[in-house]
Each structure stands twice: as structure tokens, then as C-alpha cells.
Simulated assay, not measured.
Amino acid sequence: MSNTTTVTDGEALKIAYSPCPNDTFVFDAWAHGRVPGAPALDVTFADIDITNGMAERGELDVLKVSYAVLPWVLEEYALLPCGGALGRGCGPLVLTREPGLDLVGRTVAVPSERSTAYLLFRLWAADVLPEGVGEVVVLPFHEIMPAVRDGRVDAGLVIHEARFTYQDYGLHCLADMGEHWESATGLPIPLGAIIAKRSLGAERLRELAASARASVRMAWDDPQASRPYVRAHAQELDPVVADQHIGLYVNEFTADLGESGYAAVRGLLTRAAAEGLVPAIAPDALAFP
């Protein structure tokens, strides 16, 4: 699904992000031409598993991706210091039909094997499930809770607004990946990143970061302005849940990663590389031009 809005001269910038409330809230002002001097956007809406694949294939100019995919794409893409999703108390959850289920040898549905959620799950499992789970299957995130509820999988790793709605499916939270991460590291939880092609050039990348930051601040200054865009793409999500979603995932780290945000990203990728889950990245790979 694509939506092109021309607000400046020249070719529109091709960008992909999810239809989730946090992304539409963040990019509303920019996508609708309300950020002065920002480039036009040609927007594609896609779930994170799809945008991760787009990044690995180098398909678009700007993408919202999982931090977990960075080791495979940082040669071609630069991490923008804003616009993404980090935070506290906002990590992925492992859900089951039965409270306290032993996951050893069980089937677990995950939203993507290159997702940050899955990376956090693998780091958690390395600490608490040394015998390992049985089979991991990839499902679109909105299909995971029904699959657990219906017994098609034993457990599901969920993200986004599922944190607020899983009890509606009669499910139980077995473990909180973010809670485990925060207790182990003291760092915020890195979830989704905004990346842009290095070939755009350093000046252009700085302009994009400024546009993203301005769009975030405009959304905070006038939350009502983004509501039509959020509701149009929220997949029938309850407005109250959408507001909770935005409140949790759009925070000070969205405006600027800052020292602790970068420390969280480096910490995640360093720990994951030590476990052999991702390739190691160069010391300066996260530096913004």
C-alpha cells in the first residue's frame, strides 16, 4: 500500500513504515507536508518483517526496521538518531494459554527471525531455557495471539498493542523480554530503528533527521492533528488502545536516541554477536554522519 504526498520540488523520498499508531503518529506531519522544508514522501505501509527484508535488499531510501537487522544493512544504510522506538516497560511478551507453561520443546510463534523481539527472546532463552524451545515459526504479528488461543502454537512472542489486548484472547504472560533486558543491563529496550541510505549523502541525511525530529515534536504539540492518519491505518484498533500504544512507544528516545539510547543499541548488538546470533558490527557503524 502506497500513499504519495508531494510537498516540495523534486522526486519524493521513498519510505516504508508500519501502519501501527506509533509510526503514523510520528510521521503524520511529515507525510502530510506540514514540516517546513522537508522532502516529499512516497509512503509504503508494511509490517516489520517486510521492511526488514526491504532493507536487506536495499529497496527504499528510508525504512523503519528492527534494530536486530542492523548488522546486515549498516554498510548501505545509516541509523538516524531519531524517529524510532526505544523505551522502558515496553518490551515484547511471551504469551501462552496456560500460565507457567514449560517452553522446552514447544512451538513458539514469532513476528520475524530478524526482529528485535526475536533477538531479545533468544537472549532471554539463553539465560532461562538452556535446553531450548522446539520449533520457531514466523507469523504476521496480528496472527500470533489467535494462533496461541486456538492451540496452533504453544506460545507466541508478541509486540506492539498486544501488550494491552492479550487478556482479551484469554492468554497469559509467561515472560516479559523487556523486563529481562532492563534488569540485566539497566538500559532502555531498543525496538525499531529509522535508517536511510548512505548514498543520499551526509547533508541529506542530516536534513532527514531534522525532518523526522520536527515531525515528532509537531505530533506532540498537536496530538489531535495526527488522529485521522492514526485511525485510518490502525486496523480497527480501539482508539484508547491506540493512544496507549503511542504513549508507550513514542517518547524522548523517539526525538533523540541520546547517550543511553545508543548504549542500548550497542549493548543489544554486542550481546547478540557474542551469542553468535548476529554478525559483529564495526565500532563506528552506528555513528551518524
Results as ranks from 00 to 15, higher is better:
161 E>T: 14
191 L>W: 03
190 P>Y: 04
103 L>Q: 12
233 H>Q: 12
87 G>S: 11
175 A>Y: 07
24 T>A: 07
178 G>R: 11
43 V>N: 14
277 L>S: 06
10 G>A: 04
191 L>T: 02
214 A>E: 13
239 P>N: 03
94 V>D: 04
225 A>Y: 02
142 H>C: 01
18 S>V: 01
153 V>Y: 13
138 V>N: 01
21 P>R: 02
109 A>K: 08
198 R>P: 14
34 R>A: 08
163 R>Y: 08
250 V>G: 08
5 T>K: 03
20 C>I: 11
245 H>G: 00
34 R>M: 05
284 D>G: 08
198 R>I: 00
49 D>G: 10
15 I>W: 09
50 I>M: 04
8 T>D: 14
10 G>N: 02
116 T>A: 11
1 M>N: 10
145 M>P: 11
18 S>A: 13
89 G>F: 07
99 P>Y: 04
186 G>Y: 06
22 N>Y: 11
247 G>V: 02
4 T>F: 01
196 A>G: 13
235 Q>D: 07
270 T>H: 11
289 P>S: 04
137 V>P: 15
153 V>R: 13
150 D>S: 13
217 R>V: 04
203 E>S: 13
64 K>G: 08
143 E>I: 01
68 A>Y: 05
222 D>S: 08
43 V>D: 13
100 G>I: 03
113 E>C: 00
143 E>P: 10
142 H>E: 11
286 L>W: 02
84 G>E: 05
187 L>R: 13
249 Y>L: 12
276 G>M: 00
